[in-house]
Write a protein that binds this DNA or RNA. Structure first.
Length: 742
DNA sequence: CTGAGCTGTCATCGT
DNA sequence: CGACGATGACAGCTC
């Protein structure tokens, strides 16, 4: 159990270190509590810094983790850990839960609509952000709405009614962040060009004039604000800044675009809040990062959760009819509206819609004057108006004027822009500098991914894995044995003259039994001759640690018989070898131990005792022999321990690199995901505009986006409702989660 | 001369 | 209880 404890502790510590090194947050406590309750207690005890080599064969298995406490498979262990980290990384990569709300401003149905009436733009709001932009007298109201996109949108090719459960919180967050990116980066509306736009141009000439000014917005808008004026991001109009709310955040979010003259501002989706002004990449990046931070802070229980809770409806088979009890008669059922070519099975956002002929005037839907005071409680559904429609920015908008459909593509996020942002994100998270990020971008398509600095990585990393898993006992015969072999060759060169007579069969016998360990010790590429001491054969050749031994004793014991007649070279060699002898070697010689230290150290206990019994040894000799054996074994143990430390460090280093690669890969996947999501939103938005633009009232006139909005009902139907009603409903639904949260 | 790194050794603990 | 491995701590040596 203690062994198990030690391994668990070490493994967790190591992995925690790994993750912390690369910035991955680890909640070990939660993990242990939820997964392995006993481990929590285990971990609380003292731990070793390094994994231990396992020599025993306890077959304990950790439930679900397969960590053998004795013969631990570090590779599998770290693999499992790595997978876990990736899962968490995925969570971390998820788009922030920042709530992005569309602030829809519409005319007060009761108030008189005047051209000078101020109107707000589209605003973003974080959870703690703007809550009430509504001016006291201008009837401007906010409408926090959330997109109710289904993930099936792309497959269906149409916008389905909000399907609860299909969209996870992460999906919503992704939509939010993309929306925000779109807002920040701008979206144009030049593409849509409908026939009825001609008519609108006359009516909204004033708007067009304003639109010509917005090239420099929001810069000019800020200036206008300073002049107590607000420049409409849509039209470029200036209007008194009388908002009680945070203007700065409003103006920041107000889409500034509609460059193309003649476009009406009314039908602008928040998704495509195009800004033709030169985008500030840094600002956008900061926005993105702020969103990410907000996500990390708290799970957002925004209105979206409620909005998406509407029961799913079949988007294709839905009858888009009026709600049965709709008190607002201005609500127009889509299938009753004059949608040329649209039958009852009309799919609201089916791709075919685009090819449908624009119905000039057909069946007219009778509209009863709106009764804003009566709320249709059945509209507990997503307000698409809030999603797609811009606030009514200009009170002079003609009610009869058909919606000028904004160009859904003109201001689309540049593909490269998104990539750049993502790469910037990557750069930040990875701690890369922009240059490195750009390099990454170049390698984006390559499998290699990040240009991690792996050059410094030791080449032995590949083999360290095997050595770590098999530990030290008997399996260091991997690639590193090459260094060992070289060392052994040097051994032969060095020779072993003094005790050559004892290097007999027993020597070979002992060598056979312990060779693996020797090679293992030499794994660390010992090149220094002094490090030949890793071989017990050569420990006398290694370091000349002559401390603890009087030089005189050494001399007297080590000096060979003064055969002065010998050649100097021979004498030198002998002297050199003597110097290479370890202290214990000298001591053994001094004590005239009749066998080698190698045998003393490496022989098994039985053989060792048998060897001792063969000789009549004094007590001092026996004591020295036991000390030699103890020290020799301990020396090897120390070497083994240090080697293990080094392997652990190298493994950690390798794992860090692996994790970094995985992180980079996941970030790339994230970028792709964001990109596809953005495209999906664009499609939905364009289809919405298509549908809305083809709706006609009883007079054959298009509905004003400033007054009407499409809304998904809970039963899957799509309703055309007044914006006021939609806003109120959206506001009401907004409060529900907040109350619930309390 | 000094500091870093390497190595051996000892003490200690756990198996 | 003894053998043994692991490891922290320490010291000596080399560069």
């Amino acid at each position: 159990m203690l062994s198990l404890k030690k391994y668990l502790t070490e493994g967790l510590l190591q992995f925690t270190i790994l993750l912390s090194l690369i910035g991955v947050r680890v909640d070990v406590d939660t993990y242990l509590t939820s997964q392995l309750p006993p481990l929590r207690e285990i971990i609380l005890g003292p731990s070793s810094a390094y994994t231990q080599t396992q020599f025993h064969n306890l077959r304990n298995t950790l439930d679900g983790y397969g960590i053998h406490p004795k013969s631990i498979d570090l590779d599998n262990y770290f693999t499992a850990r790595r997978l876990l980290s990736q899962v968490r990384a995925l969570d971390r990569f998820q788009v922030p839960t920042t709530e992005v709300n569309a602030w829809l401003v519409h005319r007060d149905p009761e108030g008189s609509v005047s051209g000078s009436q101020p109107s707000s733009g589209l605003a973003l709001e974080s959870s703690s952000g703007l809550q009430d932009v509504t001016g006291p007298d201008n009837g401007v109201r906010e409408s926090e709405t959330e997109q109710g996109f289904s993930e099936d949108l792309e497959d269906l090719g149409a916008v389905a009614p909000p399907v609860s459960g299909d969209l996870t919180k992460e999906d919503i967050d992704l939509i939010d962040i993309l929306w925000r990116q779109d807002i920040d980066l701008g979206a144009g509306r030049e593409i849509f060009d409908y026939s009825h736009r001609q008519k609108e141009q006359d009516v909204d000439k004033e708007l067009q004039d304003g639109a010509e000014q917005d090239d420099t917005w929001p810069g000019e808008g800020a200036e206008a604000l300073a002049r107590n004026l607000l420049v409409d991001g849509e039209t470029g109009e200036s209007f008194p800044a009388q908002f009680p709310a945070d203007i700065s955040s409003l103006t920041e979010a107000v889409p500034s675009e509609s460059e193309s003259p003649g476009l009406q501002n009314n039908l602008l989706s928040p998704l495509l809040t195009g800004t033709e002004s030169p985008f500030d990449l840094e600002q956008q990046w900061q926005d993105l990062m702020s969103i990410m931070e907000m996500q990390a802070m708290e799970v957002n229980t925004s209105t979206s959760e409620i909005l998406y809770s509407a029961p799913p409806g079949d988007p294709l088979s839905t009858n888009y009819s009026l709600a049965p009890n709709t008190p607002i008669n201005q609500n127009v059922s889509l299938h009753q509206a004059s949608l040329g070519g649209c039958s009852q099975d009309f799919s609201l956002f089916s791709p075919e819609v685009e090819s449908l002929p624009v119905a000039g005037s057909s069946t007219l839907l009778p509209l009863v004057p709106s009764n804003s005071t009566s709320l249709n409680t059945t509209f507990g559904s997503t307000n698409l108006a809030g999603l797609f429609f811009p606030p009514q920015l200009n009170g002079t908008a003609n009610d009869t004027a058909g919606p000028e459909l904004p160009d859904p593509l003109g201001g689309l996020l540049d593909e490269a822009m998104l990539d750049e942002i993502s790469l910037m994100d990557l750069a930040i998270e990875e701690g890369f500098n922009p240059v490195q990020a750009s390099q990454l971008e170049e390698e984006f398509d390559s499998d290699s991914g990040l240009s991690l600095d792996s050059s410094h990585s030791p080449s032995s990393l590949s083999s360290s894995e095997g050595s770590s898993s098999s530990s030290s006992s008997s399996s260091s015969s991997s690639s590193t044995s090459s260094s060992a072999s070289s060392s052994f060759s040097e051994e032969g060169a060095v020779g072993y003259s003094s005790d050559s007579e004892t290097l007999d069969l027993e020597e070979a016998e002992g060598a056979v039994g312990y060779q693996p360990e020797y090679s293992k010790f030499c794994r660390m590429s010992y090149q220094d001759p002094s490090q030949l001491s890793c071989l017990p054969y050569l420990e006398h050749v290694g370091h000349n640690h002559t401390y603890n031994m009087a030089p005189s004793a050494l001399d007297s014991a080590d000096m060979p018989p003064p055969s002065a007649l010998k050649k100097g070279s021979k004498e030198k060699q002998t002297d050199f070898l003597d110097k290479q002898m370890s202290r214990d070697e000298h001591r053994a010689r001094a004590m005239k131990i009749p066998f080698t230290n190698d045998k003393i150290i490496n022989l098994p206990v039985e053989e060792f005792n048998e060897l001792l019994s063969k000789y009549q040894l004094s007590e001092a000799q026996l004591s020295l022999i036991r000390d030699i054996r103890r020290r020799g074994k301990n020396k090897m143990a120390a070497q083994n321990c240090r080697k293990r430390k080094l392997d652990t460090i190298l493994n950690l280093e390798r794992d860090v690199e692996d994790l970094q690669r995985d992180k980079a890969r996941l970030l790339r996947e994230k970028v792709e995901f964001l990109r596809s999501l953005r495209q999906m939103k664009q499609k939905v938005q364009s289809l919405y505009q298509e549908v809305f633009g083809r709706l006609r009232d009883e007079n054959g006139r298009p509905y004003s986006p400033s007054q009407y909005a499409l809304q998904y009902a809970g039963d899957g139907s799509v309703l055309l409702i007044p914006r006021t009603l939609a806003d109120q409903q959206a506001r009401r639904q907004e409060r529900k989660p907040k109350d619930r949260r309390k």
